[in-house]
Design a protein around this nucleic acid. Structure first.
Lengths: 247, 247
DNA sequence: TCGTCGCCTTGATCACGATCAATCCGACAC
DNA sequence: GTGTCGGATTGATCGTGATCAAGGCGACGA
């Protein structure tokens, strides 16, 4: 168990009505909005506000009432579940275009915190539900995203239950790299904005083991570290093979 | 890694047109069908056939094309993902009323095998998709089941990543007990139709550790074992506390 | 410039769960 | 009855990843 770093459980500091709207949004091809008609995104705009978060700021906590749904437009969040004794599991890292609120419970079952500075679109849940009823495409899109999230979560079960530390780290890096590509960034070098503690809590390891696994992948010539938060993937096939993933 | 028991990868031996239909179905209150109008279940019946599986018989394999969706009406299945070297992770046990096909991919990402003798309703995927478009309640019901599955999978991430063997087993037993209650059976004694190998692959442990954890829970007076496949939960609050679950 | 503070890495040791191995037990065949 | 076989339990030992500990490194402020 590690001591958590300075969380900032303050109310959101940057909520305001949306203005610039969705026309020039960088994630509109991947977010909920993808495939919506212009007038539908227009309607989304009417119920939308934007939120900004500073690094480590809390968006919501386990047990909070869920009153809003979100789309991340820039930055990175972590979703985590914690036990009373401090053990923590990070269920996933949220990257631009991802939607928060797919599981649709009344009360949040996980916490969401900013890894880096974040910008989000925020929608009131009741209005969102109403819109879903009126706009089949929006509803279908959310269903589709839910299915994808389910696939990802199930994939992570194998990772947590049966992979070795090196295999876990290889999978983690490849997953991040794929996401970077989806977001129009190069596959390598790869930014790792989260701390080693975050990575450890995502992979079910300790920070020391994560650090040693980074060193092991370096020694094998699979990756290079410019600094702790910047990875170059030198041998993608090798990394893929280590992760036990199909070519 | 353990050697797998006698799998039977034969074609299904009991596929036939449905006849008795849904009227006297024991799971209609929990399955996809729940909340559908009588004429809607009638339409489901027209595209449905039934399947029976013998213990350890394969319903589908990782990588198979997904041509049908299923509802389990009796028995128990395991969903598993395997690595080429034989390591296996069981993503979940399927109990009556559960639906197979929520994640909606074209190709199965996991295998489904019978733990006990099973009976299922089977629906062709294209027809099912067509019905979903025409019948909002069916579509909403599937979306709802997908959300529930997502919540369950995410809950299991914490279990696999951060719980000790005893805690894992406590959670597993409580989860099974809750499901038994949902299916109208007593919370205890609890039937454990799966083998220790299955439990181990579900919890990310070895069979020996599972067996030792059973013994540990017995010693603590939390459970009793009539035989290896029949558990009495003696101290539910104690078990819940050990599992780290809210009272 | 130096000192502090987070965070990361590396080394030494420990301990928990894996592995190896022996036995047990019930089911089934003969 | 006896023998075999699959699965579960229990014991002994091993090894990987956790824990404990020290040091490094970069950012920031005095």
């Amino acid at each position: 168990m590690q001591v958590r770093s300075n969380m900032i459980p303050f109310p959101l500091n940057g909520t305001r009505q949306a203005q610039g709207a969705c026309a020039d949004c960088g994630v509109k091809s991947r977010a909920v909005c993808a495939g919506l008609a212009p007038e539908e995104t227009g309607i989304l705009t009417t119920i939308m506000s934007t939120v900004t978060l500073a690094p480590n700021q809390l968006l919501f906590e386990q047990g909070d009432l869920r009153s809003r749904a979100y789309t991340l437009t820039s930055g990175m969040l972590r979703l985590s579940v914690s036990l009373p004794d401090g053990r923590r599991q990070i269920a996933g890292f949220v990257t631009p275009g991802d939607y928060l609120g797919l599981s649709g419970e009344d009360v949040h079952t996980q916490a969401a915190e900013a890894v880096t500075a974040c910008r989000l679109c925020s929608f009131p849940v009741p209005e969102m539900n109403r819109l879903m009823e009126q706009h089949p495409r929006l509803r279908d899109r959310l269903h589709e995203l839910t299915r994808k999230a389910l696939l990802e979560a199930r994939g992570n079960l194998l990772m947590l239950g049966r992979l070795t530390p090196n295999e876990k780290l290889a999978r983690f890096l490849l997953g991040l790299s794929d996401r970077a590509v989806e977001n129009g960034q190069p596959a390598t070098p790869l930014a790792l904005p989260m701390t080693r503690t975050d990575i450890a809590d995502y992979l079910g390891l300790t920070i020391e083991t994560v650090s040693r696994s980074f060193s092991a992948l370096k020694t094998r010539g699979l990756i290079q570290l410019a600094d702790a938060h910047r990875v170059e993937i030198c041998d993608r096939p090798g990394l893929t093979a280590l992760a036990g993933l199909p070519v």
